[in-house]
Write a protein that binds this DNA or RNA. Structure first.
Length: 225
DNA sequence: CCCTGATTCGC
DNA sequence: GCGAATCAGG
């Protein structure tokens, strides 16, 4: 397999969509994850959230020792590292509300079995600061199921190559399938998804008893495999 | 062990 | 330029 422009483009898109090298490799097909990583670097793609980042060498040490230069023009307010990363299968059992013991003394919640705190209604998701959002249910492990199709049968739909920072990355369908595409709406600023899909992705953790239907599953539901 | 990305180095 | 082998953190 060679790195055609299209494959490179796909690589770029997937890379900065936060997909892992393994996923990209599988999607592209015919390449190993090493190849993907190697290519990504050769392309000059930034390795953002990399689990293995030793330590930023303070390269600036050479200059003014006495001028620490505190705050440069810090541009981006905060990129909450959005993206639909979390590759692994979403735990079917969302885990018991962990006893938030210890640690922060700020949220001294009375341990009293609170009488059903129902905070959200259908459709309305709680706006939270990116830092304090409950973990979004992971939308779609974009695993390749069939050889990547270079030309999608989809027209007018948001394909992988159409992704950018301003459109909703909520996947529809399953990767590898002919009609797989993305939502494509305008994103809810600060999020990788549009408002509607943020509502699906960011759910307040309700008490178990109140969770009627199975948690909303992105990607059109679990894939039968 | 598994995963991840980074880096090296022979090709 | 490519990517397997290797390294290293989680």
């Amino acid at each position: 397999m060679s790195w055609t422009e299209e494959r490179i483009d796909t690589l770029k898109k997937m890379w900065d969509s936060g997909l892992t090298a393994t996923q990209i490799a599988e999607e592209l097909g015919g390449v190993s994850r090493n190849a993907v990583i190697g290519k990504a670097h050769r392309l000059g793609l930034q390795s953002r959230p990399s689990p293995v980042k030793p330590n930023e060498p303070k390269a600036a040490a050479a200059a003014e020792p006495a001028a620490p230069k505190p705050a440069p023009a810090a541009p981006a307010p905060k990129a909450p590292a959005p993206v639909a990363a979390a590759p692994r299968a979403p735990a079917a059992e969302p885990a018991e509300p962990v006893a938030s013991a210890a640690a922060s003394g700020d949220d001294a919640k009375p341990a009293a079995p609170a009488p059903v705190l129902r905070s959200v209604g259908p459709g309305g998701f709680l706006r939270q600061n990116p830092g304090e959002q409950s973990a979004p249910i992971t939308p779609a492990p974009p695993r390749r199921l069939v050889p990547a199709k270079p030309s999608e049968a989809i027209a007018g739909k948001t394909s992988l190559l159409d992704l950018n920072d301003r459109i909703c990355k909520w996947p529809l369908g399953h990767p590898g399938e002919p009609d797989f595409h993305f939502c494509g709406d305008k994103v809810n600023p600060g999020f990788p998804y549009c408002v509607a899909h943020c509502g699906h992705a960011y759910q307040a953790q309700l008490p178990r008893r109140d969770r009627r239907p199975p948690p909303p599953l992105p990607f059109g539901g679990p894939r039968v495999r």
